[in-house]
Design a protein around this nucleic acid. Structure first.
Lengths: 303, 303
DNA sequence: TCAATAGTGTCTGTCAGACACTATCGA
DNA sequence: TCGATAGTGTCTGACAGACACTATTGA
């Protein structure tokens, strides 16, 4: 095998020795992390349950470009680390937690997404249990903050064509911090073209107030992915503490899907994914509830 | 806004002017294309219908590393083109077709996936209608060939743990060309870890015979994605000619999913996605069938 | 007792899987 | 006529959505 020679008469060993890619201009590569968690909101009435809130981690930019605006945690990928380890390293630096759920989302490769130079960004989504977050005290993270996430469709348009249609959806993404003194937002226009054959989808940031780069559309894409995957996988449990009540679990589904669910149906649906423990909630202003844990044997044969 | 200064006292304009990223060592970025199509196999009996065959495009490497082996079509992403346009450019060069279905699959970022240097590869999947392929006469593609794709699980293992399980699946991928004189293969080991919380999946090429780089696992991943998406989207129609019979459509599903389907059930399921025409198949050795076309209005509200 | 939540039972329609049946072409 | 494919009707069980009901706690 290694005796094969290429058209310049080089063996593989000779070829690799002579190989030098430094003469080519290359894009830079970054990883950007979407770190989601769900926490309890405030509830003054001691009898009522606190509402769940979907939050995500953002960092304040300390340098140009977009100085002072909020961006996804992330950073450049060096030549001697894999994409996954770069993502894990960023998580460690920002959230200071190992061993948390992480999946690759999408790679954003527009030429002009970063005014500094050509930057390709590989985005990852990570889900963390808010309970374990007490440990958090990121090193880097002087200017890291958890923002409440709200996303809503503010306008829709659909034009029928002879052989399909074009649709536009404007989604407003709003992030605000606990004290409500910071609020940033972005409007993403999602274009769907069904022409002849199947759908082609494009996302554009059409308005951005305090959110750096194209991070608005990355976040919107991540939320969509989270909403989809929560329906057919068990990723929710990464947002849950080890023990939880079914009502809590339902609230987490509700805040992510942004709609109310019927209790009886919800419980039937997730019954196979959880195992009852003999623990109960305590000191609530009403009937206590059983605590459950995740059933690790649950799966649908998907790997 | 542009009057803001960073900690070095620079405005954004000054900062960007001084910005130089050439001092950092960067990975290279490539796009790799999985181009699938479905063609008719040979059927000597004039009364029987030809079987459908799933095929994909591979190119023979003319240089080190992996010289003489078969690889996915693809190439380096230059600094002045987006990922999508790089992918479209490669398609144009290899298959010489514009306006075909394409979606981003996954970005592969292991450090040692290319012996030349650090290369990150963004993979795309593309589906083309075999009828339009007659036009194909790729420029670059002296050594491009369509291979019949076969993928089968050859071994499975599952070990239960106190708080979950570890599973291993060995998938054998086989590619052979029409004349059967070329046949390459690869075995991919898929590890699934369900420990405490949710599943973590990893893919390794454990055996490779004639398939370059880690392309075996990229292909396996692509086939899995195709199998999943065919169930809940309309991407199949990108593999179909403008007019087709329901039996043909069913055969395409069957060859992708690698299982037989029941006719009556299949027809009910896809009934909303197609529109009947008043054309019929001709000169078949049996009852002719109605031809259908894709219904572009079909969608489930997904964009 | 009441407010609030915990938890269950059951009816509905839809839909996927299984299977059996009828129809129509060409040689 | 037969071989092959085209195309339909219907039973089943699983399951999601809707809704009504009972149970249990702390003040």
């Amino acid at each position: 095998m290694s005796e094969l020679r290429n058209k310049d008469g080089l063996t593989e060993e000779e070829f690799l020795k002579a190989y030098d890619d430094s003469k080519y201009k290359k894009p830079s590569v970054t990883v950007d992390m979407l770190v989601f968690t769900v926490t309890d909101g405030n509830e003054p009435n001691y009898r009522k349950l606190p509402q769940k809130v979907l939050k995500m981690l953002m960092v304040k930019r300390g340098n140009h470009p977009y100085i002072g605006q909020w961006a996804l945690p992330g950073g450049f990928v060096s030549v001697d680390e894999s994409l996954d380890s770069a993502a894990l390293r960023e998580l460690k630096e920002e959230v200071n937690i190992d061993n948390i759920y992480m999946e690759q989302l999408y790679t954003w490769g527009d030429v002009d997404r970063d005014p500094r130079s050509r930057v390709i960004s590989c985005s990852y989504m990570s889900l963390v249990d808010c309970a374990s977050l007490n440990i958090m005290a990121g090193d880097d993270a002087d200017d890291a903050k958890w923002f409440t996430v709200k996303s809503s469709v503010i306008k829709q348009e659909k034009t029928m064509l002879p052989d399909g249609y074009i649709s536009h959806d404007w989604v407003k993404l709003e992030l605000c911090d606990d004290d409500r003194d910071i609020s940033v937002s972005s409007v993403i226009k999602i274009t769907g073209k069904a022409k002849g054959k199947t759908l082609y989808v494009d996302r554009q940031v059409v308005e951005s107030d305090g959110i750096a780069f194209d991070h608005g559309k990355i976040i919107q894409y991540g939320i969509e992915r989270l909403r989809n995957k929560i329906e057919y996988t068990d990723i929710v449990f990464n947002l849950m503490p080890p023990r939880f009540s079914l009502t809590e679990l339902q609230q987490v589904y509700e805040v992510i899907l942004d709609k109310k669910l019927l209790k009886a149906n919800f419980r039937r649906k997730i019954s196979g994914m959880v195992i009852e423990t003999n623990e109960l909630t305590k000191d609530v202003g009403h009937r206590p509830s059983k605590l459950y844990r995740f059933n690790p044997d649950w799966n649908k044969g998907v790997f």
